[in-house]
């Protein structure tokens, strides 16, 4: 029952614990609370994007445009900041989320109303979004000195010892955990991806549900866009280039099934943390950071093999003897 679905996350949790123990055995400084908090903070953008991506994948879709959305929204809010440095940060954040939603809705509409395969739609919007950044800036960078101090301060501001960036990731985890487990829309994501035909019978509009998934993914990508450019204090065309695949990797490692209907916020969180810990640990343990890509590739393959075995359904059982055994 619950055990089986929980075991995926449990397995990953154990893997993360083993990984940390291994690092700690040689480099105890890595597992000090301060350093772990720093690792978490560094992984926060990936966590935010992985939650959005997980919801999209739940509905049997994929969003390859998240990193481009992040870059475009980041650039838009940077330009707004240059044009109107006095604008309150609340407004900037609202614009980032709103603009991200708009970009997500474009994907969603194309998937819902025109039934274009999600991989094609987001492959297309991915290149378009990046191209639009170029059109906006003619390839110029927005550098640190052009951004207002308030603009750069938000993600770094510490509350109760943790930066705002971390708090946003924590809030998103809690918020979307509630949305996915306790709201009708949240359960519809699982239903629409797990069994689209049955979802239609249950009165769920599968296309519209997918639309909302892309919208959420867009909102999170937009928010992350602002956080990213303000944290690194730079915006340019190739911000977070190729990051969409890291995000998908975090989901896959977190036990999200690419076939739809299976996945949890906890899984996405752990998948992102797994990749974040490896990225942060490599320089510490004196392994060249150039190992990171191969390790995450290996992790994806191992994760997908393990997930496939865990999800293999027993099928219909006819023999009475076997039926009693369940």
């Amino acid at each position: 029952m619950k055990r089986i679905s929980a075991s995926r996350e449990l397995l990953l949790l154990i893997a993360i614990a083993l990984l940390l123990a291994l690092i700690a055995s040689r480099f105890p400084a890595f597992v000090t609370p301060a350093n772990l908090a720093a690792v978490f903070n560094d992984t926060s953008p990936l966590i935010l994007l992985a939650i959005g991506q997980m919801i999209v994948i739940l509905t049997k879709c994929i969003d390859l445009s998240v990193a481009a959305n992040l870059a475009l929204t980041g650039m838009v809010v940077s330009l707004i900041n240059i044009a109107a440095p006095g604008l309150p940060m609340v407004v900037i954040v609202a614009i980032a989320i709103g603009f991200g939603i708009l970009l997500g809705m474009i994907n969603g509409i194309l998937v819902w109303k025109l039934a274009i395969p999600p991989i094609v739609v987001t492959l297309g919007t991915m290149t378009i979004f990046r191209g639009v950044i170029f059109l906006l800036t003619e390839g110029k960078w927005v550098n640190s000195h052009e951004m207002s101090d308030a603009f750069k301060a938000v993600p770094r501001t510490e509350i109760f010892g943790l930066p705002v960036l971390s708090w946003i990731a924590i809030s998103a985890v809690i918020l979307f955990w509630i949305v996915l487990t306790r709201t009708t829309l949240g359960r519809s994501f699982y239903a629409a991806g797990g069994n689209p035909n049955a979802a239609t019978y249950a009165g769920i509009n599968v296309g519209r549900t997918q639309f909302w998934a892309f919208t959420i993914s867009g909102a999170l990508a937009g928010l992350t866009g602002y956080l990213w450019v303000s944290r690194f204090a730079v915006a340019y065309v190739d911000v977070a280039g190729g990051f969409e695949l890291t995000v998908v990797a975090a989901c896959v490692i977190g036990g999200v099934s690419i076939m739809g209907g299976i996945g949890t916020v906890l899984g996405a969180l752990l998948g992102a943390l797994f990749l974040g810990i490896i990225a942060n640990a490599l320089p510490v343990v004196n392994i060249s950071p150039f190992w990171q890509m191969a390790i995450s590739g290996g992790a994806i393959i191992i994760a997908v093999v393990l997930n496939a075995q865990a999800n293999r359904s027993p099928g219909r059982i006819i023999l009475k003897r076997a039926e009693h055994a369940t």
Binding site: S188, N195, I204
Partner: peptide, 19 residues
């Protein structure tokens, strides 16, 4: 046809859409 959802709980299957 069984129009149910393997990954959801029994209670959720019963009340999906009108919980």
């Amino acid at each position: 046809e069984t129009v149910l959802f393997d990954e959801l709980s029994v209670a959720e299957n019963i009340f999906l859409g009108h919980a």
